[in-house]
Nucleic acid binder design. Structure first.
Lengths: 347, 347
DNA sequence: TTTTATTGTGCAAACATTTGCACAATAAAA
DNA sequence: TTTTATTGTGCAAATGTTTGCACAATAAAA
């Protein structure tokens, strides 16, 4: 004969219904071992019957814990980041966490604001790809100090005591270059991104190391550094490289846009791919399967990277008061994808 | 001489500091008109000095309101959706709302679970692109009934009393077709998506209407229906269309992948574009600027669509107890982007 | 001057849950 | 049997904010 107000069901209603105390209900719901199996069943059945669920806000309020993970990316409409976030969401939602997203737009100021907001309360943990502008890291240190688990992805920052998950750019680029060498290329160029950026520098280093390890000579003329690896820049780079007096027979590109450009430019010059020149890209963008010939590339497993980032973050969250995990740099493996723009390895 | 525990600052601490009551602090923070300008300044200064901020959880707990918007997309690593979400985030974060994302993976079951979770508490409002599987809409109706503002995007659902923002697929496709006609095409084919899907049907209808409005004849042979508009299917479609006894001089494609395929196939057949055949795509994928010749297309303004969705949702949230807004279908305008794959309009 | 309206502030309750502590009941050990 | 340990449950406090109501002080109206 209750007032049939449509207020949400609380733990107290359940308690009254079952002649138990709210504490008991609460403990059943958190699976407290002190509760007997009999009452657990009793309560759980009622919970199902009434479709009851805890008020997460009240719960967070009292326990000072949330189930929300803050993810801050430079922007989410970039293929790579959207894949990482997808990987994070899939893993985290499985464990009952929610993902709240923020875009720093690669602005240091904005990144600071976002982190302040996240510290303020709502985050059980934070996964972040630092903005390109970010040089100072006080805001990140503050997060760490305030004991909020933090995981970086994609862009490493030196001297920061936290977990980071990224790919092994050096190795991936080395592998790509090695692949060209294995197929018989003798003079291989590199179209790079901005060499002041950590990951592009490593890609360059990997390329160079593969050359010297295989007794091929590197010379400055083989390197074309672009500003932002755009398709347009790729065209310019390829054109320049095509005019070398000592002609090249392979190009390792730091992404698939420049690789696409190179492919199209050499086609226009009637230099056939891969017979006369092999071209390999990086990142496995959709375009690499559409350009003719399809472009060999390195898959960076962005989705998987998100998975891992979520995994180690949640580990930290849940172990927070137990053993302090030592922080580590996790290198996600990359895959060499061989398509038509590089010659096949002769067996 | 306080205990220097590192517990977060509360409204009470501020109150003590200033010899005021917590109520006053609270009212200053919510800009209550009953508070004098003098005390407002006093409090606000202190707030800045100490870097104080309300505990959003406690606040939500008491007020039963949150600042969190749930966004559920089929998947977030699809170009279109990631752009929409980016648009939502930009607009909403400006107004102090956070975005929590969920992926339905186009599964009806998962979608239902997600909505139940969102109803359970945390959402001030919900923006959703319904899964392809979704036929029954009880779960959506439940959200509406429970008075949580709801906005659909991209995929309309009939007979659902809520706001929806999408593009005018009919009109956009009409415009694309009209563009070909304006440049002199007389026999125009259409590569369509699955015609059982609302938006692809509308694109087809728009195409057909443009033909008849301009005294061009439509015949079944001009329509090639694909299953999922993949690049591969595009190749098959283009090949079939290239063999028509009565040759075509234009193709309207329902996306840019099939358009890319068509361009590449006709190039291979040495049928020059746009001289002998004009090809136009849909959605303005990155690839459309890379394929040679660059592909004319329809830009769907996904980012802007997210903006609008966020805008009308937040309107609803904040007007919740005031005037009941009537629900509307908002059609985001699309842009015809003319590139090299279609002839220029002769002036 | 008295009455009435207005302005600015404080009191205290309420929100739904979690958790330390207490305690009764039962089981195990002495 | 008495003592001690174990098991299962309840009591009540605490969490930080918001808000209806009360009330004092001042201003305006009578």
């Amino acid at each position: 004969m209750k007032k049939s107000d449509s207020r949400r069901l609380t733990i107290k209603d359940l308690a009254k219904e079952l002649n138990l105390s709210s504490s008991t209900i609460s403990r059943v719901l958190s699976n407290n071992p002190r509760i007997s199996e009999a009452t657990k069943k009793l309560v759980n059945d009622k919970v199902k019957e009434l479709g009851f669920s805890l008020d997460p806000i009240a719960s967070s309020f009292r326990s000072k814990k949330t189930k929300s993970i803050g993810v801050v990316a430079p922007r989410i409409d970039v293929d790579f980041h959207s894949k990482v976030i997808s990987g994070i969401e899939d893993y985290a939602s499985e464990l009952g966490y929610q993902i709240t997203i923020f875009q720093s737009k690669d602005s240091y100021i904005k990144e600071k604001e976002i982190l302040k907001l996240l510290e303020t309360s709502l985050a059980a943990g934070i996964i972040i790809c630092p903005s390109l502008e970010t040089q100072k890291v006080d805001h990140l240190k503050k997060v760490i100090k305030s004991n909020i688990p933090l995981v970086l992805y994609d862009r490493p920052i030196e001297n920061l005591d936290t977990n980071i998950v990224c790919i092994n750019d050096y190795q991936a680029s080395y592998d790509a270059t090695k692949h060209l060498i294995n197929t018989g290329c003798k003079r291989i160029a590199h179209i790079s991104g901005n060499l002041n950026v950590n990951i592009f520098n490593k890609r360059f280093e990997g390329y160079k190391a593969a050359l010297v390890d295989n007794d091929l000579e590197f010379e400055d003329a083989l390197l074309y550094q672009t500003h932002n690896l755009s398709y347009q820049e790729g065209l310019v780079a390829a054109e320049k490289l095509s005019k070398l007096k000592n002609p090249i027979d392979g190009i390792v590109c730091a992404n698939d846009y420049t690789a696409s450009a190179a492919v199209q430019l050499f086609k226009k010059l009637n230099i056939s791919i891969p017979e006369n020149i092999s071209i390999i890209g990086f990142s496995n963008y959709p375009i690499s399967t559409i350009i003719e010939p399809n472009i060999s590339t390195i898959d960076d497993n962005a989705y998987y990277m998100g998975n891992i980032a979520a995994k180690i973050l949640i580990q930290q969250i849940e172990d927070k008061f137990q053993k302090k995990i030592d922080h580590q740099e996790i290198l996600v493996k990359t895959d060499l994808i061989i398509r038509d723009s590089t010659k096949k390895v002769k067996k």
